[in-house]
């Protein structure tokens, strides 16, 4: 459903992504792992056109979406939950969720149903709806960011470092939610993580990114036992 073919990306003169290709098939979770600065976020931002693709192509459901304006890519159903959550601090939680559905031409009734769904999946947000986004805790903000993404009815959901800066208990919760999303909505998910252990545990395929290159890729269940990957990313 998403095919990234040989893309190259530059920041000014510096090349950040070198000839990267990767693929997401419908109903699978793909994880992208790598150290800080490996280019994981850049890759995601390139897909949604926050960063310009210099060469190569990005195909979504058979359509070339390379360098389309971001808002047009979102309208086609690729929802990116960015690194650092990027909650609208000055909007209430309810408004944040509502803005998640901005690209859809939904009526009030549909919006209410979607909000119900969110309430069920993220009970911790329920009594926070009137609060400003900026007043939430880190874990709550992450939940809100994911929930806001779901409000857009993603055809492909991309989560960028959802566990970053969260307490271990909350990290567990986040991963549970990701599995739940997968199970209930059958949405394909791209999961960018530094927490390689957990990401590989829940994903079907894994790509390993090193300074802008794909160094390893394959089934998560197999890659997990690759000695080099183990050594570099999975601890002992």
């Amino acid at each position: 459903m998403l095919e990234v073919k040989n893309i190259n990306v530059f920041y000014d003169q510096v090349q950040a992504i070198h000839d990267v290709s990767f693929e997401v098939k419908s109903d699978e979770i793909v994880s992208v792992i790598g150290t800080n600065g490996a280019g994981k976020s850049t890759l995601m931002q390139t897909i949604v056109s926050l960063v310009e693709t210099k060469s190569g192509s990005i195909i979504f459901n058979g359509e070339d979406i390379t360098n389309l304006p971001s808002h047009d890519i979102v309208k086609r159903g690729i929802i990116y939950v960015p690194e650092g959550r990027r909650i609208f601090y000055d909007l209430t939680v309810a408004e944040n969720l509502e803005m998640g559905a901005y690209a859809l031409k939904t009526d009030k009734k549909r919006l209410r149903e979607d909000l119900e769904m969110v309430h069920e999946m993220f009970p911790q947000l329920n009594d926070r709806m009137k609060q400003l986004g900026g007043t939430l805790s880190g874990g709550e903000q992450q939940m809100l960011a994911i929930a806001r993404g779901l409000m857009g009815h993603p055809k492909l959901l991309m989560l960028d470092e959802p566990s970053l800066g969260l307490a271990p208990v909350i990290v567990e919760e986040v991963f549970d939610i990701i599995l739940k999303i997968k199970k209930e909505t059958n949405t394909p998910i791209v999961l960018v993580e530094q927490n390689a252990n957990m990401a590989m545990a829940i994903s079907d395929n894994t790509y390993v990114l090193e300074v802008g290159y794909v160094s390893f890729s394959g089934k998560s269940s197999e890659l997990m036992y690759n000695p080099e990957v183990k050594e570099a990313y999975l601890g002992s």
């Binding site: 949604v48 926050l50 304006p69 971001s70 808002h71 979102v74 309208k75 929802i79 990116y80 960015p82 990027r86 909650i87 609208f88 601090y89 000055d90 909007l91 803005m99 998640g100 901005y102 690209a103 806001r148 857009g152």
Partner: peptide
Amino acid sequence: SDQKAAALMGINV
């Protein structure tokens, strides 16, 4: 509040 996040909501910034 946040131009990039706005674009990710599908807003034509």
